[in-house]
Design a protein around this nucleic acid. Structure first.
Lengths: 324, 324
DNA sequence: TTGTAAGCGTTATCAC
DNA sequence: GTGATAACGCTTACAA
């Protein structure tokens, strides 16, 4: 920068002003720009960061991005961030709370401006006003959470199944989402069943590694080739697809005998169709919401929860139109 | 840091040495560590970067991570990078050469230590010795490329199809991979066909948006319900799956009448099985190779091409054992 | 082995 | 509106 100043015959301050879009005499600006081009000069991010305490980068904590939902979310968040002139520091935690802690440590060391995180560490301490936006997990005051409208999604699933003729509903959940917003899917589902006076049941496997207990239960409720349940709402599309193939392997027809709805809205990457009837999460909107929140500094005044609307999409495992 | 020095009753240099793992008297080290803990001190990454010209971060340029292959690669690369103490600056370019240029600009501005890139800009200029490792694209001297063994993969596909009884082979490729290593899949495939004296044909759609021409061609080669071709090798799993469903919609049986092999080794995320018979790319090894290269500074002495071994996996679209 | 001091490339605060 | 100067927090000779 000193060289540019010399080359352009102006002072350091002026050069700085040019590069920061400050008001500068037009002739000076031109001279500086010319000199900068000639010298192939560009601002030094580290020096600027040191001075301003701003790195123009946000860390994104993800358990993994092999799952298509996480991948899509990461893709959109990165895209949003870049559109705002920010860089994305992607950190993969592999669902490991210890790794999450280490990531936070890194973030503070590098003075990264904020964190968007989908974490699995219940007691994760977010020190000293470090801007943090959580996805699908509700922490405490000052840490906004963005998620899909899980409660509404649960309701929607129940309403659909009932409208499609189901009278004996079942809810399935697996995974250690103990601290998640995700639990509300069940509540929403139940609330509709109750108010409509529809029989329902829930099976929740919190820390199970396997889905076997679901199948054992399901099998125990099949008599003479007929299932007690005619509608099943699953916590994820993945689970829904598994349940469907189990049912079929037991000789039941889907959707004729049993209808199944999943959650997420995962699309097959080669057909671009949903893989089952499902409640689809508004991924792009979630990304935008998270980025807006993290970039708008004033997290203390931010809503504790931003819950974005979901929609239902038939995918062949319910009696409404199936794709293909 | 000054505060820590004061608190510990030592000098600045000593504190710095402690944090950089330099030899320091044990009693001093303890005092410094104690003081640092008390003050909640941590090294300032920006200041350090300014001084050392090292940011401990690598940029990863990806066209998108919605595609499962890109997602898996990004996941593994990020993981490798973090294991080496580096951060990943993920940049999504959406296949846009202009965006790629901008990313490079960002990288230089922020003095990021290097780039791993899967790019679509044929003339991308990598200025001034900026460490760059390319994936699946061969640039020029000094820019190593890591890829799966595309030539070997093509050979393997041909060998398998022939071993499984095919006598009339076809190769399909789509996409604008004009500058890619990926073209070698075709060469490998052809080389085997020639040396085995097997009839084959290739259809390459370089800049087509749609697969329709493939289907038109395929249809023209079906007479009396029998296809001229009994074995097809596709450039990607995605294409392979599409071709399979086209063939079936035309009343042909796969794999009985026509056998199909894809490339990539994509797995269904809910069954974890490959989605067709395929040549699987060694994603983890590719990630490790790319990270090793970029971190080992001396790119001028690095191999121009690191080509990692692939393997074949049956997936139900060939006559060898099919899953499920 | 430890302390001192210069300097990395910016930005910001002043007088001018 | 422009130009000198201090300061940001660290590393690294070099001196003690």
């Amino acid at each position: 920068m000193k060289d540019v100043a010399k080359e352009a015959g102006v002072s350091l301050g002026t050069v700085s002003n040019v590069f920061n879009g400050q008001a500068v005499g037009e002739s000076y600006r031109l001279k500086v720009e010319e000199a900068a081009r000639k010298l192939g000069y560009r601002l030094n991010g580290s020096a600027r960061a040191l001075k301003t305490n701003q790195t123009d980068s946000i860390a994104l904590l993800m358990p993994s991005i092999k799952h298509p939902f996480f991948a899509a979310l990461t893709d959109e968040i990165t895209d949003c961030l870049m559109k705002h002139g920010y860089r994305n520091n992607l950190m993969i935690t592999n669902f490991d709370p210890e790794a999450e802690r280490k990531c936070i440590e890194l973030v503070m060391q590098h003075k990264i401006d904020g964190i968007i995180g989908l974490t699995y560490h219940p007691d994760l301490v977010i020190d000293e006003g470090l801007p943090f936006v959580s996805i699908d997990r509700h922490f405490s005051a000052g840490i906004p959470c963005v998620s899909s409208d899980n409660f509404g999604g649960g309701q929607l699933a129940a309403e659909k199944l009932i409208a499609l003729g189901c009278r004996n509903l079942l809810f399935f959940r697996i995974g250690s989402d103990i601290y998640g917003e995700v639990n509300k899917r069940e509540s929403g589902f139940e609330s509709i069943c109750r108010s409509r006076n529809i029989k329902y049941n829930s099976i929740v496997l919190n820390d199970s590694e396997t889905e076997a207990p679901f199948y054992a239960y399901l099998r125990s409720r099949i008599r003479d080739g007929v299932s007690d349940y005619d509608g099943i709402f699953c916590n994820s599309d993945q689970l829904a697809v598994h349940v469907v193939s189990f049912l079929r392997s037991e000789g039941l027809r889907v959707p004729e005998d049993v209808q199944v709805i999943g959650y997420d809205g995962i699309r097959s990457f080669y057909t671009d169709k949903v893989i089952c009837s499902t409640i689809v999460q508004p991924i792009r909107q979630m990304a935008e919401a998270a980025v807006d929140l993290i970039l708008n500094k004033d997290l203390s005044a931010a809503p504790a929860l931003v819950s974005l609307p979901v929609r239902y999409e038939p995918g062949g495992t319910t009696k409404d139109s199936k794709p293909e």
